[in-house]
């Protein structure tokens, strides 16, 4: 009866920003990104990609509550980098990895279908 609409899990409400960014007021080069209507799929790949960056001192994500459809990604970097730079770098690297994966998969599909 009072269940929230199912689409609320993945449609960003009007007037809400998909990504918001908040710097830590006490620690330099630390910040939190709030991603609206995202969950473990994006949170975990971002976290693991950020861990590959040696300038990232801490990277983690949390899903604050199962009925709040957002995740918070927290990043702390060295002074050589910044959370925004590391975050962008991680997205770019993941995007290129997926491009590579798509090409590799399609090539393999061609190879297999030729064999049949």
């Amino acid at each position: 009866m009072n269940a929230p609409d199912r689409y609320e899990r993945f449609v960003v409400p009007e007037g809400t920003k998909k990504v918001s960014y908040e710097r830590d007021t006490k620690i330099i080069n630390a910040a939190s990104f709030t991603l609206e209507r995202e969950e473990h799929t994006i949170g975990n790949i971002l976290r693991m990609q950020l861990h590959r960056d040696p300038n990232v001192l801490f990277a983690g994500y949390k899903l604050p509550h199962p009925l709040q459809y957002k995740i918070i990604v927290r990043i702390h970097t060295t002074s050589q980098s910044s959370p925004m730079q590391a975050y962008n770098q991680a997205i770019n690297d993941l995007d290129r990895e997926l491009n590579h994966l798509k090409n590799a998969f399609e090539e393999e599909m061609m190879r297999i279908s030729r064999e049949y």
Binding site: K18, Y21, E38, I42, I91, L101
Partner: peptide, 24 residues
């Protein structure tokens, strides 16, 4: 193939907007 494409699109929408980056 579609899953890879969807995942790419998902990553693309979590790129920070211009204004967010400028403010930073």
């Amino acid at each position: 193939v579609n899953a890879i494409e969807v995942l790419k699109q998902k990553l693309d929408v979590v790129r920070p907007s211009e204004e967010t980056e400028e403010a930073d």
